Computed example of a mutant assay.
Amino acid sequence: MRPFVFLLLFLLAPSISWAQTTAAAEAAAQATALRRANQLVLERRYESAWKLLKFLDQMNLDPAVALKKTELALNYYTATDELKRFAFRDLKLLDLSPDSLRQLEVDTPRYSFPVRRVLEKLQEKYPDNYKLDRALGDYYFAVQQCDCAEQELGEDAVFQRTIKHYQQAHDHGQGDYLSYFALGYSYQRLGKFQESLAPFERSIELRKDSPTTHLNLAFVYLELKEFEKAQAHARRAVELFPDDAHKEDAAYLLGQIEERMKATAATQTP
């Protein structure tokens, strides 16, 4: 029997080697295509990036490609049908931002990509891929921000799902300053101010110059009656916001905080 086994292994070796070589070549080709898609996004050629990703994985079976599609869809669409179909534009470097283009209602082709369904199907197959949880957190946060999908859920349920997926992602090392901000914001909007502190503070650790995070922390600390911390974050927000409108908002909150500090001090004076 032993010579037969050796002969069988000898005969199978070329096919095994070929399969390994093919898999390596496919992985390398995919990595090259994803890098190209990233470059197209940097060049603001969003529709071209989408077409490349669509060609790369038409059935949305590959987590890496689906995650890149999700990032592109949620951040760079010019129009959407309930976050299930998306329109994109290739922009010139000096063109309007995607947010501005959304206001123009330009008639462009729409590509099918039901974000939630795609990610949940992949999660069933790859339950340990926590990047999918991160993407689902991004999806539900986008739902709340645009108010353009999942109308049957209600805002509180959307925030709860946002928290669930971001917490799972963060517990497994999948997070950045934006996801921590979104988690803190979700707790804040649910009135869970104490729970919002840790993710907001983590967001600040990862991006110290984010004025929006400082502003939200100022509001939370005000609600918790930690006035000195609220004042410090509000002042930082005033410093960091680049435009007058947001500076005025932060300055108004700072004024409210300082009024509360004065009123509290007056009540404590014998």
Score class of each variant (00 low, 15 high):
I257L: 12
A49I: 01
F181K: 13
F88V: 07
P98H: 01
G255V: 13
Q160W: 00
M1Y: 07
P98S: 04
D128M: 11
E248N: 08
Y126K: 08
A24Y: 04
L94R: 12
A31L: 06
Y139K: 08
D209L: 09
A33K: 05
Q151E: 10
H214N: 15
L94D: 14
K262A: 15
A66D: 02
H170M: 05
R236M: 15
L183I: 12
L222W: 12
Y180L: 14
Y221P: 13
S97A: 11
A218H: 06
E201N: 05
L8E: 01
D128I: 06
R117S: 13
S210K: 05
D156S: 12
W50S: 04
C148Y: 02
F241A: 11
Y185W: 12
R189A: 10
T78G: 09
D62C: 04
N60L: 07
F227N: 15
E155Y: 08
D90W: 00
A142P: 04
S196A: 15
A169I: 04
E228T: 14
R134P: 03
Y185P: 07
A37H: 07
D62Q: 10
K92D: 15
T32Q: 11
D107T: 14
C148R: 06
W50I: 02
L52K: 00
S48C: 01
A87W: 01
S100Q: 10
L215P: 04
E223N: 15
T269H: 12
W18T: 07
M1P: 08
L12H: 01
D57E: 06
E152G: 05
W50V: 02
T162F: 01
A266P: 09
A157R: 09
A24N: 09
A149P: 03
K51W: 00
A234W: 09
Q145H: 04
L101G: 05
I16C: 08
Y185D: 14
Q168I: 00
A263R: 15
E43W: 00
A64N: 06
L9I: 09
T267H: 14
C148H: 02
D147Y: 05
V106K: 12
M59C: 00
E155A: 13
Y46T: 02
R35K: 13
R161L: 11
R161F: 04
A263M: 15
L11A: 13
E82M: 10
R161W: 00
S196H: 05
P3S: 03
F200P: 07
G137P: 06
S203H: 08
S203A: 15
A230K: 09
S186Q: 09
E258P: 11
D99K: 05
E82P: 03
Y140Q: 07
D107E: 15
A37Y: 07
R134S: 12
E43P: 00
L224A: 14
Q268M: 14
R102H: 04
I16Q: 04
Q123N: 05
E26S: 03
Q256W: 13
V41S: 00
P109Y: 11
F141Y: 13
P199R: 00
T162D: 02
G255Y: 10
Q174V: 04
G173P: 09
F10A: 13
M261Y: 12
V143M: 08
Y177T: 12
Y76F: 14
R44W: 00
K131V: 08
F88A: 09
L190Y: 10
N216I: 00
E71W: 05
R85F: 03
